[in-house]
């Protein structure tokens, strides 16, 4: 049978790719400490759970890369880099609005949410909730399929301002609200409200060059579903690990 994602024959040894990716990240981080200069007192951050002044904006652009579980995609392509943009808008009373857009042609997600922050000295805490809409389509040979869905991500995060580095740990729940899939002339709507799993993120935001800051995050999603794997139409109720690496420049 023609493979699911075999748009073009790409052979990837995922272990080699992952090793290379980790080495690349390490090589990228090491020189950062040398490049750091002109620390600004008004440094910006997106992940760090400290409140930002009302109506100030912090935003980051970069890429994220999720590794899809072998059990779901089997021999097909497991890693697809996704363009990633995140924005945080400060509101009064330590609230802020979070938005995130992740896009890669056949699988796209946009989220918006609210968080409240509390800080003491160099430490900060926040709690919030993001709602996401995802959209995927494939009209290539053998496919006439469109899928959309809503996800909900309640979260808490804590972080430490280590002067040169903002360190953040974030824990989220992944809740599938609903999903609609259309193939040809028929469609299927599932009202799920189902816990898909949870995720833990580790993020570092630190100076990079002149007044520019850099975001590096690893998000460990342990869930039954992640929107980037929608085309596999996996029906498994078993949770799988979907590691996600995020690199961005704070703009």
């Amino acid at each position: 049978m023609v493979s699911l994602f075999k748009i073009e024959p790409i052979k990837i040894n995922e272990n080699i790719l992952l090793n290379k990716f980790i080495k690349y990240i390490a090589l990228l981080i090491l020189p950062l400490s040398l490049l750091m200069q002109n620390l600004s007192a008004q440094r910006e951050f997106v992940y760090f759970p400290k409140a930002i002044p009302a109506w100030d904006i912090s935003h980051t652009a970069g890429i994220s890369l999720a590794i899809l579980p072998r059990a779901i995609v089997e021999e097909e392509i497991r890693q697809v880099p996704v363009l990633d943009y995140q924005l945080r808008l400060g509101l009064p009373y330590n609230f802020s609005i979070n938005t995130r857009v992740s896009a890669v042609y056949i699988a796209n997600q946009a989220s918006i949410g609210l968080q409240w922050s509390y800080s003491y000295d160099d430490f900060s805490f926040s709690i919030g909730d993001n709602t996401a809409y995802w959209y995927g389509f494939a009209d290539i040979d053998g496919f006439d399929i469109v899928a959309t869905g809503w996800m909900n991500y309640p979260f808490i995060s804590i972080g430490a301002d280590l002067e040169e580095v903002y360190l953040t740990i974030k824990a989220e729940m992944l809740i599938i609200t609903n999903q609609n899939t259309s193939v040809g002339e028929t469609s299927l709507y599932n009202q799920r409200n189902k816990m898909a799993g949870y995720a833990v993120s580790f993020a570092i935001e630190q100076p990079f060059w002149k007044d520019n800051d850099f975001l590096l995050a690893v998000r460990l999603n342990y869930a039954t579903f992640m929107y980037q794997s929608w085309l596999a139409v996996s029906t498994s109720d078993n949770k799988r690990m979907f590691p996600e690496f995020i690199i961005g420049f704070i703009l």
């Binding site: 023609v2 053998g142 496919f143 006439d144 193939v183 040809g184 002339e185 028929t186």
Partner: peptide, 8 residues
């Protein structure tokens, strides 16, 4: 045919 094409 692949099911993702619908009823056809």
């Amino acid at each position: 045919p692949r099911w993702t094409l619908g009823y056809l």
